[in-house]
Design a protein around this nucleic acid. Structure first.
Length: 432
RNA sequence: GGAGGCGUCGCCUAGUCCGGUCUAUGGCGCCCGCCUGCUAAGCGGGUUUGGGGCAAAAACCCCAUCGAGGGUUCAAAUCCCUCCGCCUCCGCCA
């Protein structure tokens, strides 16, 4: 949800934002209309309701007087009652109209995406801008062997088992076994340790959430088709810890001196991956279920941009520690998702694909989620929504893909980056 | 899953049986001021949030807000219904 004042004072900003996203520009004008309607009908209700309250207030004492035997008040009482009864009808009607207008306006608000940061490159998925490329991809030709892809390596190491997972759960599932499982645990520990050092509070959140949390974080809009819904209980399986972490402080006013409030969540993530048939079908790059370590921050809106840079820095630190070549991209407006104003992805070099693939993503959702979830802070006398930001620290399968492929050796063994060695207890992943 | 208890403006709390005097009581905390060598205490005032009136700031006013939603009524914190959450006990269970 965006600031209602923006709609009234500068709808052009919203129109331009919608245009850059490639979303419905007319929605803005319908919202202006619905908002005006809502206000005028609410005002009409307020007035008639006020009248009713004043009238009602005079009835009690009159009834009291009559009860004490003062029959002279009877005439006045009857007149008041008659008037009040008629008024009650009008109140009811006005209430219904105002409620309907509020509902219509509310529905439209929920369809409006966050205002994009005007510095974000305009366009679709392919119109990202590369901000920086870090590290140098290995030259396997010079090393005298052609790299194996992560699935081949994973199978040789008995670390990844996709075939048997298909038996148990279907396509796009996997078992991590042996060193594969250990690798995930080591990555988890490395990530949480880094985040904790940086002042993040570690969290193990629920992954089954209410519609409120899902809608508040913006995942029931165009992203809804990728969400698993538990029909029988009206619950959702989260696609990221961003959802429960965002909801953590719903309906709260956070003390200004508690900000920024940083959480690092470790959770399983569930994604339907609708509309990705035929895409990344091999291996564990695109799966229905995986674990992820996610950073989530509540901060002062004026500090959000700087915090976004910090989160990106921490994501890069993690990649640097794992010695994986990567690039940082500024995601284009059409690929932001409804809640983000700006998004930076880190893409790891994947040798067997000869390209960079997304491994982390950090979004500045400004006050969009906070407004929906009613998460505010007090600055002096002013109460206003906080800003929220999120960023991947480590998405397990993709990080494992990047590790195996980039650090593989000619014989199929994999050297472990120094930062991970003490946590894994191994310098090399040997063939079993 | 069954039975019972509970949910009030940051925290605690009065009010709910019996609808109107609730403009929701009091305490704690917090803010402003007074008093005061300093601090503490004391005294006075303020202190839910949201939507509007209103282009902006202040003041003021209106409406909503007593877990949520609906109903009864001229009028609901209070009566009725549904739902949610918390606590206790029982059952089942990792």
């Amino acid at each position: 949800m965006i600031d209602p004042r923006l709609l009234r004072e500068s709808p052009d900003v919203l129109r331009e934002s919608q245009r850059r996203r490639g979303e419905d520009v007319g929605l803005v004008d319908r919202l202006v209309e619905l908002d005006a309607q809502r206000r005028s009908l609410q005002m009409a209700y307020d007035d008639v309701r006020s009248e009713q309250k004043h009238l009602s207030k005079r009835i009690g004492p009159l009834q009291g007087a009559i009860k004490r035997g003062d029959t002279s008040a009877q005439g006045e009482l009857d007149a008041l009652m008659a008037e009040a009864t008629g008024l009650a009808e009008r109140v009811k009607a006005a209430d219904a109209e105002a409620a309907e207008a509020t509902r219509l306006a509310g529905d439209a608000w929920l369809r409006l995406s966050n205002v994009v940061d005007m510095r974000a490159p305009v366009g679709g998925e392919e119109n990202f801008e590369v901000l920086e490329t870090v590290g140098t991809p290995r030259d396997f030709t010079a090393e005298g062997f052609s790299p194996r892809d992560h699935l081949e390596l994973g199978e040789m190491l008995k670390a990844i088992d996709v075939e048997r997972a298909a038996k148990v759960s279907g396509s796009r599932f996997y078992f991590l076994t042996g060193v594969g499982a250990l690798l995930e645990l080591a990555l988890l520990n490395l990530a949480v340790a880094q985040a904790t050092r940086n002042g993040f509070i570690p969290v193990v959140p629920p992954v089954l959430v209410s519609p409120r949390a899902m809608e508040g974080t913006g995942f029931l809009g165009q992203a809804a088709e990728n969400v698993y819904r538990i029909e029988s209980d009206d619950m959702y399986l989260v696609g990221t810890a961003e959802v429960p972490l965002g909801g953590l402080h719903a309906d709260e006013i956070l003390p200004a001196d508690s900000l920024p409030l940083r959480y690092v969540g470790w959770s399983t993530c569930f994604r339907r991956e609708a509309g990705t048939y035929g895409k990344d079908t091999r291996g564990i790059i695109r799966v229905h279920q995986f674990d992820k370590v996610e950073m989530f921050v509540f901060c002062d809106p004026d500090d959000a941009e700087a915090e976004h840079e910090r989160i990106l820095r921490w994501e890069r630190d993690f990649m640097d520690a794992l010695e994986i070549p990567y690039r940082v991209i500024d995601v284009a407006t059409g690929d932001l998702g409804s809640s983000a104003a700006r998004k930076f992805d880190i893409e790891a070099w994947i040798p067997t694909q000869g390209t960079y693939r997304e491994v982390t993503s950090t979004s500045n959702t400004t006050q969009f989620q906070a407004r929906r979830l009613s998460i505010r802070t007090r600055t002096g006398d002013e109460v206003r929504p906080v800003a929220t930001l999120n960023g991947t620290l480590c998405a397990m399968p993709r990080m494992i893909v990047a590790l195996l492929e980039n650090h593989q050796r000619a014989d199929g063994t994999v050297s472990v980056p120094a930062a991970l060695r003490p946590l894994l207890g191994l310098d090399v992943l040997e063939l079993p």
